[in-house]
Amino acid sequence: MRGWLESWPVYRQFRGEDRSGRGESAMSRRTAELRPRVGTADRVVKSVCPYCAVGCGQDVFVKDEKVVQIEGDPDSPVSRGRLCPKGSASLQLTTGSARRYDVLYRRPYGTEWERLSLDEAMDMIADRVIEARERGWQWEEDGARVRRTMGFASLGGATLDNEENYLIKKLFTALGAIQIENQARI
């Protein structure tokens, strides 16, 4: 009974100093217990904004193995903790409804997407690379040795990590592909 009464702001109004009921007496329990989710996160992971090339530092807050907040890293001498609207939208970019998590497949002449397992897709792609590579293979061009394939090409975005670009260049070059390109050209 007393507990209930004490939770009644009117009671608190007359007991406490906040007579007008505009201050702490009006505070709800939820409000009193409010904590920022950056404070309750399990860990903070250091990251870098994926948009432009300024390279602003980001702090990624993780709770229960989910990203719950992304904000600027104040330690960064590049950005001093600040982010632009795009960087500030990183949480929505990485966890928002626009993300797709399923492999989709459109068969030749098909009119709709179909589902495919990742494993199956990887296997099919590997087969297609081998086939296109052979079909477009050239040992020589105008009498000069070229040892290459014109059968497939690649175009990468410039949000790829250096390590990703390295593996792409390494693998595709070893496969003999030369039409390996990037946003950096565009």
């Binding site: 904000e71 609207p85 500030s88």
Partner: peptide, 12 residues
């Protein structure tokens, strides 16, 4: 006028 404030507010 970058609107970072608008977006950061909305995200938080």
């Amino acid at each position: 006028g970058c609107k970072a404030c608008e977006v950061a507010c909305k995200e938080w």
